[in-house]
């Protein structure tokens, strides 16, 4: 039904989305046992599980529909340069302010992506997106509730939220790096396209930031940090992959 170029672009899209979700889920899971309050510990862990589950869903489409390797092989056996996750998700969790703002910026984009994808002309993606978007609504709700509370909390929490927002913004704009064949997907109603998602994202994030009493950095004046979609990564991704695959690599042929 789709030609080779379209299918290749579709593979790129699904892989980038899957890698983003795998890496952010892995990062968020690092808060388990270390959260600032028990309830937040539980929330971050729960959201991390959803992300890993969404990554699995996306890798499964690549495996079952598009002839790629199985999800464990895709996640645990590829080289760093084969990952097309954006650099935003690679950064270490840092302090809670950084992780929370990243969670907001990532999830608002994820919700726009999946809401649009639920009408995709590519049926397997549409089906997955219809299931996933309901979960991501809660992720956005969680992030925005906390950003608003902390944005209007103490002097320290306001300052921390603002600086985390400034720190994250150029990285977050890197989520919308275009990829080869993207235009084909937009033409055929498979995907909304990065530019359109970015515009919608700026509007929604801007509204939350304003409600939180924070100042939205001027996206037009920032240089987005691209590269991730082409396999260029920060120094943080390789150690993350080393850790993630430490047990799996003992014997990749073994059943674990």
């Amino acid at each position: 039904m789709f030609n080779t170029d379209t299918l290749n672009a579709l593979r790129r899209l699904l892989l980038a989305m899957a890698d983003d979700h795998l890496i952010i889920g892995h990062r968020n899971s690092e808060w388990t046992g270390l959260g600032p309050i028990l309830e937040e510990d539980i929330a971050f862990s729960s959201i991390a599980q959803d992300k890993i589950g969404h990554a699995l869903g996306l890798y499964s489409i690549l495996y079952e529909q598009l002839g790629e390797a199985d999800p464990d092989t895709l996640a645990f056996m590829r080289n760093e340069t084969d990952f097309t996750s954006c650099q935003l998700v690679e950064y270490p969790i840092g302090e809670y302010d950084f992780s929370l703002v990243r969670h907001l910026l990532f999830d608002v984009a994820a919700l726009i992506r999946f809401e649009d994808a639920s009408h995709s002309a590519y049926d397997p993606l549409a089906k997955l997106a219809r299931k996933v978007k309901g979960e991501i609504k809660y992720h956005v709700f969680h992030a925005s509730t906390f950003v608003k509370q902390l944005g209007q909390g103490s002097e320290e929490s306001k300052a921390r939220m603002q600086s985390a927002l400034n720190q994250n913004m150029a990285l977050a704009l890197g989520m919308f790096e275009s990829f080869e064949g993207e235009a084909l997907l937009v033409q055929q109603g498979i995907y909304k396209g990065e530019a359109a998602i970015r515009t919608a994202w700026l509007g929604e994030v801007g509204a939350i930031v304003e409600e939180a009493g924070l100042k939205m950095p001027d996206a037009e004046k920032l240089e987005p940090i691209y590269g991730g979609r082409k396999g260029f990564h920060t120094e943080y991704l390789q150690p993350l992959l080393d850790e993630m695959t430490e047990v799996f690599r003992i014997d990749p042929a073994a059943e674990w």
Partner: peptide
């Protein structure tokens, strides 16, 4: 959690430790 081998183990261990908290 960050080293669990494969999706199935990773998801199960995350859920398990979350339960403990």
């Amino acid at each position: 959690i960050t080293r669990a081998p494969g999706f199935r183990r990773k998801l199960a261990l995350m859920a398990k430790v979350q339960d403990e908290v």
